[in-house]
């Protein structure tokens, strides 16, 4: 049994005078999908951002694949984010000027692949997410649910080892939300990516392997507290 791929321990983070995390932690193994639940304002997004190296905690450590994120230089940390992590947020964050296939290819191009090559690699992901027909359209020309699928394709296209998803279905109706979850979890399972899934919807969390609850900046693992 190997250790966790990504491990946050005893994280504290205060924004000005607002405490967001007060001793939160989470360990996640390769291929594992963990739902992070909890009331609004409890610190879920802050935890995700600390684990992804986007926000630096005031104290506590995040270890990814044996490396402590806060000990890496900025350049090294963004390289890691680009190469090893994928992101899906509530609103797709697609680049409006680019077509869907260009959006999905973007992380690959940032990682140094040539345009044609990156778009060739992006196409199967559009197919996988059942949106191959949208390849040439721009985000302004597709629905919110379709945009979310493009965002999932983009997050997965660079074969990330960890996918960070913050309310990935928050803007979708339940049928579309479930389809996006089905496609996201199936793809993640197949490529053995770990997924940190922030959601307040139980039916979305039910796609994960386990859940943790954040309350007042602290995490609790319901399964192990039994």
């Amino acid at each position: 049994m190997t250790g966790p791929l990504l491990h946050a321990e005893n994280l504290h983070k205060t924004y000005r005078s607002t405490p967001a995390l007060e001793g939160a932690g989470l360990a996640i193994s390769a291929g594992e999908i963990v739902a992070v639940m909890g009331p609004s304002g409890s610190g879920k997004s802050t935890l995700l951002q600390c684990m992804a190296g986007i926000v630096r905690p005031d104290s506590g450590t995040v270890t990814y694949d044996g490396r402590v994120l806060s000990e890496l230089g900025d350049a090294e940390r963004s390289r890691l984010r680009r190469a090893d992590f994928g992101f899906v947020f509530q609103f797709g964050q697609l680049v409006p000027e680019l077509t869907c296939v260009e959006n999905v290819a973007l992380p690959l191009r940032l990682a140094g692949r040539r345009r044609r090559d990156a778009e060739q690699a992006a196409l199967p992901w559009l197919e996988r997410l059942e949106i191959a027909g949208l390849a040439g359209k721009r985000p302004g020309e597709i629905s919110g649910g379709e945009g979310q699928r493009v965002a999932v394709a983009r997050a997965l296209a660079c074969s990330p080892r960890v996918v960070f998803a913050d309310e990935p279905t928050g803007a979708l109706d339940s049928l579309n939300g479930e389809r996006v979850m089905e496609l996201l979890t199936a793809a993640a399972r197949q490529s053995r990516a770990a997924v940190v899934l922030v959601t307040h919807e139980a039916r979305v969390a039910a796609y994960a392997d386990r859940e943790i609850v954040v309350r007042d900046g602290r995490t609790r693992d319901l399964e192990s507290s039994r």
Partner: peptide, 15 residues
């Protein structure tokens, strides 16, 4: 909390 965990466990199974 325990009840919540139990509900989610069943929801995962059904999913």
């Amino acid at each position: 909390d325990v009840q919540r965990g139990e509900h989610l466990r069943l929801m995962r199974e059904l999913t």
